[in-house]
Design a protein around this nucleic acid. Sequence first.
DNA 1: TTGTAGGCGTTATCAC
DNA 2: GTGATAACGCCTACAA
Lengths: 345, 345
Amino acid sequence: MVTIADVARHAGVSSSTVSYVLSGKRAISEETRRRVQSSVQELGYHPNAGARALAARRSHIIALMVPLRTDVYVPVMMEIAIAVTMAARQHGYDVLLITNDEGPDGVRRIGASGLADGVILMDVELDDERIPVLQSNGTQAALIGLPDDPAGLSCVDHDFAAAGALCADHLADLGHREVAFIGYGTGVYTRHAGYAERTLTGFGERAAQRGLRFVHRPCDGTYESTAGTFARILADRPDTTGFVVQNEGAIGPLLTLLRSSGRTVPEDASVIALCQAQLAEQFAPRLTSVTGSAEELGRVAVEQIMRRVTAAGNRQRPVDETVLLTPALTVRDSTGPAPRPGSQP
Amino acid sequence: MVTIADVARHAGVSSSTVSYVLSGKRAISEETRRRVQSSVQELGYHPNAGARALAARRSHIIALMVPLRTDVYVPVMMEIAIAVTMAARQHGYDVLLITNDEGPDGVRRIGASGLADGVILMDVELDDERIPVLQSNGTQAALIGLPDDPAGLSCVDHDFAAAGALCADHLADLGHREVAFIGYGTGVYTRHAGYAERTLTGFGERAAQRGLRFVHRPCDGTYESTAGTFARILADRPDTTGFVVQNEGAIGPLLTLLRSSGRTVPEDASVIALCQAQLAEQFAPRLTSVTGSAEELGRVAVEQIMRRVTAAGNRQRPVDETVLLTPALTVRDSTGPAPRPGSQP
DNA sequence: TTGTAGGCGTTATCAC
DNA sequence: GTGATAACGCCTACAA
């Protein structure tokens, strides 16, 4: 292993000089800077992470706590994890992966051991039990998702209410009058995940404003569940012409069911998916979708936590902020003008 | 922050005693062990990770390098990552997430800084450029995937050849004579990913033995691509009655295309998917599938690297091993006896 | 069975 | 602009 002392000797300077060249924390003559840097290159020196963390009281690691549940659409989770990792690297940080099954103890362990300088929590519930731990042990955190009370915290999430409103507006603009909202399984609602309610509320309020009649039906994303949901919607509201789907798993089944019920999309029925663009484009017809950027979610969370870590390092009080990312509606081939009443099957 | 000295004082012992109680590396009287442990609890002591890594020359972290490419089915990647994380925790290890865009330099950085004690590499190519780095800088590694030359390495992967053979056998057993293999996009083959070729070879050899005629067609998993592939298959081999799909994205489109071409599954055409069980069960009809355990893949990789790290710590030569996990065929509702010749549309 | 003390490789304070 | 040097918190021979 090559140490800072090796580099110092090789460059003919003291080890503190090497340290300062690397950290840039004090002025160094151009001459020595070059000598040191070429020694670093030549010897392939990388500072020992443990020693650095010990001396500087900063590990240059942030922890990312991911949910184990799979009712969250997995590719989005992964996209966030990767965005977090790459954004962290830009700040000279690495990312430690923690699973949610460790729960509050995991947060405690990471904070107390100094393994990470901060934690990013995904899949935050409204009254998340990890939050009190953060506060009691002074761990810096950024939450992806909105808790009930974001006081003292930095949070970032999609603006799900705006997403719901976009769906209602688009369908209303196209002249639809009866629409159905196919949501997540009931578990997601009873769990107080927040995003499901917020989408629904945003949709419902805008629908009311625009004079749209709508029903909300939970659906757990299997074919059977979707078939049941679909049948009940048509039974209750046979004149439904617009569908908003939030559960990624229900999209394929819904399209199949529409087709086999004799409805053509978008002539007889319009479909909007609340999902990432890549998925929306994979279906036939390509789906009009309302999408937020998972990548940006991760990036913002990293920036939030970096600011907090820096502040805490300077013994300042970190500033709390809540950021809601505005989603976008992309019109593709699955939405069109409402059919004339009585013209659908 | 609570240190080992605080615990020692609180328990009325020396700090080395506390250390030994925690590591279990020497005999301790039942009496003191209890006192120390209750002090640890009471004070909420967690050893400082940096100090521990520095003194013991072991970070208790393993790095997991994940691909950025999305032609690997993302949920499987995530399942592996989570399995790795949970298995590592069982050994007292945490997992650092590294993205493949760091390439060989990432491996060098992790090894040289002592940030991690070992690395698990996912999405290994046949002549992966990260492998020479491992050897030159003595970093312990476990590979998920098989390189050309596994000498000096520990590797684990699914037995894709066996998976291919299972598909051929099942279709042959059902009396099919003309089958099509819908693979990944051409990029996956030219990239030398290994698993695609191995599946195809295993399938092809068994098909030949069983007197099955088959065509292989690459497909990148979009609807359009699948439609094109499907059309060409039917044009070239109109009597095709069996389909094997390896590309997860092509499954939905294929089922839609079969249906709209007037074929009922499984009466007119049988479909086998090479994908995880959860996905196979999501379609209608539920798909017969050949599946390997992603969770086991991750677990085995962790065990391999733990053995290597331990060996290296004791200055022994780590033992190399290559493990191939046997996949299983699960018969569901998408495969059935071949239709009588001439009876399909 | 337990204690003492040296060292792990960096950072950062103090001195020049 | 540069060098010594004292922490940082833990582990592990070496002693007792």
